[in-house]
Every structure is written in structure tokens, then in C-alpha cells.
């Protein structure tokens, strides 16, 4: 039950703050969904990523880019405590979600994951019907009368028109691109305010990728999107903000540790990066 109180506290926190600042401009700039401070993630003795501090602005799309092993996926997974599922993973530092420290001892990681949606690299629908896939999350929350929720989630995931007549068919009969949009619908069904996406289009063809990117942009109205991608064109096409990660190689010990180089407006990252490593990466001279 302590999770429920943590979650309730999150909600209580937000309302007064908005009320207290009536001069706040557009809702797209009501602060940050995530504030990450000095986060390092270790798997056993191996430090995957070190001393990352960044903020994720609300209702915008933030892309995490960088070469393999730079820790971008690891950082994404600290945002909803998915790293807890890895046996020897340990997270140091602070991650605040809507002002609440999600690594505080009284926070239940399951509750965190319930409130933050996640989409994975490979489409992973359950071997159930399309309807049951979308209804999975709401059912976990004990919600009944799900028809409306399922339709709404499928509409938002731009899949409704393709599946409205076959909601009871197996999800695995859909194409890869449709399966990924179904996974997005499944994540949207619990009405999260953040969707984390881990290379959501890397297993898809260009047309399906295009649809996912359109979908990401439309999600901005209601959600904050954090997307990991190794595809720089994709980052420049869809994201408002881009965080560039790099790998620090310690030749003596042979250790490769990821670190955040910079986070800036996407157009700035791609045209006038302040760090030479970023420029080298986005212009294709590295990585």
C-alpha cells in the first residue's frame, strides 16, 4: 500500500505547484518530468554508465543517441526502474519523476512501471487477442468496462482502423509494424504521462518506421516521450531535444563506460554542437 501513497503523493505534488504559478506560459513548458542527477549504473563490477545528469522536459520528445555501449538504453531503463529486473544491477544517484525520488526506499518499482509506459526494440505482443493485449495494463489496475479504453488506446496508436473488425484475432497475426503499434497502444491504455521507447523502429521497415515516427509526434499532446535510437536521422526528424552519449574507454583496464556528453535542442545538436565528440558523431565521422 505504501506504493499507492507514493503515487498519490506524486499527484498531490503536481496540482498545487501548477496552481501556485499562474504566470506559467504554455503547458508544454510546465517543467520537467524527469530530473536525473549524478546517476551511475553498475552491473556487478562493471560500470555501464557514469555520472549522468539530465532533465526531460514535459510533453516533448527527447532522443537519447550515441554509439553502442554508451549507456543510452541503460539510462532509459533507470527512468522506470526496469534495471531492477537485472539481478546484479545497481543504480546510484537520484531520479526524480514529477518531483518524486523513484529510488526512495518507500517507492514500489512496480507502481513506477505502472505509471510510465515502455515500448521495446522488438515488438513483443502477448500471445493473446489484440483486445486482450491492450486491456492487459488496465486489467492489472483492476479496471472494468474496458471497451472504451481499448478503442481509445488503439485510436491513439493509429491502429484502430486496421484492427477494429478483428479485435478478437491473435495479436501475432499482425505485421511487425502493426505489432509495434499494438505494443504502443498497450502502453497507452493505462494513460501514462510518459512513454519510454527503446529503439522502437529498429526492427521495422521504412514505411512502418515512418508511421511510428508520426505516432510519436502525435503522442506529444498528452505524453512525454523519451526515445533511444541509434538512427540519427530519426532523432533529427522526431525529437525536440537530443542527449548525446559517448563511450569512455579506459585502455589500461579495458573498461568501457558510457557517459552523457551533452543535452540540447535537437537542431542545436545537429548544427552547432558544443562538444567536438557530438559533432564528430552526428556528421558521421565517429561511431
Amino acid at each position: 500500500m505504501q506504493l499507492a501513497t507514493a503515487a498519490a503523493r506524486l499527484r498531490r505534488d503536481r496540482a498545487p505547484r501548477q496552481a501556485a504559478s499562474p504566470s506559467r506560459p504554455a503547458p508544454t513548458t510546465t517543467g520537467h518530468v524527469f530530473e536525473v542527477e549524478d546517476v551511475s549504473v553498475r552491473y556487478g563490477d562493471f560500470t555501464a554508465v557514469r555520472d549522468v545528469s539530465l532533465t526531460i522536459p514535459r510533453n516533448e520528445i527527447t532522443a537519447l543517441i550515441g554509439p553502442s555501449g554508451c549507456g543510452k538504453s541503460t539510462i532509459l531503463r533507470t527512468l522506470n526502474r526496469m534495471n531492477d529486473l537485472v539481478d546484479d544491477a545497481s543504480v546510484q544517484g537520484t531520479v526524480r519523476y514529477n518531483g518524486e525520488d523513484i529510488y526512495a526506499p518507500d517507492v514500489d518499482p512496480v507502481e513506477v512501471r505502472r505509471r510510465i509506459g515502455m515500448v521495446f526494440q522488438k515488438p513483443n505482443p502477448f500471445p493473446k487477442s489484440i483486445y486482450d493485449n491492450v486491456a492487459f495494463g488496465p486489467r492489472l489496475n483492476g479496471e472494468r468496462d474496458l471497451d472504451g479504453l481499448v478503442e481509445e488506446a488503439l485510436v491513439r496508436a493509429a491502429l484502430w482502423d486496421e484492427v477494429r473488425t478483428k479485435l478478437r484475432s491473435p495479436a501475432l497475426e499482425l505485421s511487425g509494424g502493426q505489432q509495434q503499434r499494438l505494443c504502443i497502444a498497450r502502453a497507452l491504455a493505462t494513460r501514462p504521462d510518459v512513454i519510454l521507447m527503446d529503439e522502437p523502429a529498429s526492427a521495422l521497415d521504412p514505411i512502418a518506421t515512418h508511421k511510428i515516427e508520426d505516432l510519436m509526434r502525435s503522442l506529444r499532446e498528452t505524453c512525454t516521450v523519451v526515445v533511444v535510437t541509434h538512427n540519427m536521422q530519426q532523432a533529427s526528424r522526431v525529437s525536440d531535444w537530443t542527449a548525446f552519449f559517448s563511450v569512455d574507454v579506459d585502455d589500461e583496464q579495458g573498461m568501457r563506460t558510457g557517459e552523457l556528453v551533452e543535452l540540447d535542442r535537437t537542431d542545436a545538436i545537429f548544427t552547432e554542437a558544443s562538444d567536438p565528440r557530438t559533432e564528430a558523431y552526428v556528421t558521421g565521422r565517429m561511431g
Binding site: N80, E111, R113, F120, N124, F126, F136, G137, L140, T190
Partner: peptide, 9 residues
């Protein structure tokens, strides 16, 4: 993983 990501215990 998908199930855990949706907040299943």
C-alpha cells in the same frame, strides 16, 4: 519484460 514494463508484479 513486456509484462513487467506494464507494471505487472
Amino acid at each position: 519484460t513486456a509484462s513487467a514494463g506494464l507494471g505487472a508484479r
